[in-house]
């Protein structure tokens, strides 16, 4: 009997096609049963432990700190300074976690380097290694801040769709490491105001013009394709129906192609 090919495991396939109540239930289950893998590195780990103790107690939020290892955890709380020596271990442990997984960056050091921002051996921010969902600032943050961070994560999970998070690349990538995005150059601020693209004289029906306030739908050359029930007998004070979104790859960037475009993914 040979090796059985189980296929690539995929997360989010069902939740993409599931109806909204099912998504709601799945998200509810996921956000109130976060098993946390405490990646306690430094002083923030002590405040993390204090938050799990009787006074502040994050177990009542469903965050259970008893994950025996990364393979049984959904949430990784990186608390403390990530040094360059420790960075490969952080990355490796993150990759050992099964999806869906979330990361809370707890404390200034793991947010951005913190007081060690100019050190030669500190990774300035764990988001250079793993995608972070919630950043909790502080040095060290109070336990209440961690509780707040967990609540924000739970709200984020409530509103999320796993299909979008882990599915094929959507136009706006979610949960991607920051290392790939380029910082905007100051030249961006010197660009002139960009006007929306005007439809050409060869007015194709699927050419989507912007429905701006100065172009009411009654104006025939600008009229966006309307569904049949919306006649031109619209009340004049009704807000103009916005046109369909432009296709994702339409170029809406600066006139100068050599400047980096903030809006392209």
């Amino acid at each position: 009997m040979g090796v059985i090919n189980l296929g690539e495991p995929r997360v989010g396939t069902i939740s993409r096609v599931a109806p909204k109540p099912i998504k709601f239930v799945l998200n509810w289950g996921r956000r109130y049963s976060l098993w946390v893998f405490n990646f306690g590195l430094a002083c923030c780990a002590i405040e993390f432990i204090a938050t799990s103790m009787s006074r502040h107690d994050f177990i009542r939020l469903g965050v259970i700190p008893f994950a025996p290892g990364p393979r049984q955890a959904d949430l990784m709380v990186v608390s403390g300074t990530v040094t360059d020596k420790m960075a490969p271990a952080v990355k490796r442990l993150y990759e050992q976690m099964p999806e869906p997984k979330y990361v809370i960056s707890f404390g200034a050091c793991s947010n951005c380097g913190g007081p060690y921002w100019d050190s030669y051996c500190v990774t300035k921010g764990v988001d250079q290694l793993v995608p972070v969902d919630v950043y909790v600032p502080g040095c060290p943050p109070r336990p209440e801040a961690l509780l707040h961070g967990i609540l924000r994560l739970q709200e984020k999970i409530a509103g999320e769709s796993l299909g979008e998070r882990y599915g094929p690349a959507s136009p706006v990538p979610v949960a991607q490491p920051q290392a790939e995005s380029r910082p905007p150059s100051p030249a961006v601020l010197r660009r002139p105001l960009q006007r929306p693209p005007q439809p050409t004289s060869a007015d194709r029906p699927e050419d989507p013009p912007e429905a701006s306030p100065e172009n009411p739908p009654e104006n025939p050359p600008r009229e966006p394709p309307q569904p049949p029930e919306s006649s031109s007998g619209q009340r004049p004070d009704a807000a103009p129906r916005p046109g369909p979104l432009p296709p994702p790859n339409s170029v809406r960037g600066p006139a100068d192609p050599s400047e980096p475009n903030l809006f392209l993914p």
């Binding site: 430094a42 040094t83 020596k85 420790m86 007081p115 060690y116 100019d118 050190s119 030669y120 051996c121």
Partner: peptide, 24 residues
């Protein structure tokens, strides 16, 4: 694995800023 270079950073902190690093 927790070496953060505090002693090197001390060289560029004045005597009040050192306290931020010294207690960590």
């Amino acid at each position: 694995y927790m070496h953060r270079g505090a002693e090197k950073l001390f060289e560029v902190r004045d005597y009040r800023q050192i306290i931020v690093l010294a207690n960590r």
